[in-house]
Design a binder for these strands. Structure first.
Lengths: 119, 119
DNA sequence: CAGGATCCGACCTGATACTG
DNA sequence: CAGTATCAGGTCGGATCCTG
């Protein structure tokens, strides 16, 4: 196992188009139901939400508690272990904020990615 | 622009299969030539290396200096601005290291992703 | 030496429909 | 309500060949 695998492992937790957003929601609001997450993140669809939640659960970042009721109810929250991520998330967030400004200074308030810069 | 965009912007810099590795190399070794990076990261190919370097350059994380010589020579290094990332990278690395162990405790020394857990 | 261009396969994302 | 199944589209990674 090479050293930078650690790195990629760490990133694997965060990448996935929606994981940061989900984590943010869970960190801000504490425990949330599936439908609450859906409402909070309007652009996501069930499949993606369920999928990313499963991965986060597998990685022991979020806790999933299902109640066997007639109207099903499942609650998600950040696990104790997952809380250790908030430091990293915070660092990322702070840097990201500064970075957005930095990019604007460099390129004006345009797109944020290289996109097709090949004419 | 939603709040979590910052987040994604920050992550966009780091994601891409090879960016963390490249950054790590550049941080450890200072200035490096294209071919040195290739040697240091044997599994990457030219296209990927060039591509990821271009993106990092666009984001002002790495500096690219080309010398107009007969045998071309291009040197890459972390920009002053990019150095601000090392904090984040370090945090990520530390957490990632701990996480690998955590996963091993949970699942034994097996694969690190959920993969197909649907039987 | 340092890339650019092209093409292809794998994976990721998403819309829709169906289930307990 | 909380998902799963299926299918379609797009993006990403990589091999190979070509250029200055």
């Amino acid at each position: 196992m090479k050293e930078y695998c650690k790195f990629e492992s760490a990133l694997d937790i965060l990448i996935g188009k929606w994981k940061p957003v989900i984590l943010l929601q869970l960190i801000s609001n504490g425990t949330m139901r599936f439908s609450e997450l859906q409402k909070a993140i309007p652009d996501i669809n069930k499949k993606m939400l369920a999928q990313q939640l499963r991965e986060l659960e597998y990685n022991d970042i979020v806790l999933r508690v299902a109640y066997n009721q007639v109207p099903p109810k499942v609650e998600y929250s950040i696990s104790d272990y997952g809380k250790g991520l908030s430091t990293v998330l915070q660092a990322l967030n702070d840097w990201g904020e500064a970075h957005v400004e930095h990019m604007n200074e460099l390129y004006g308030e345009e797109r944020s990615g290289p996109g097709e810069l090949d004419s």
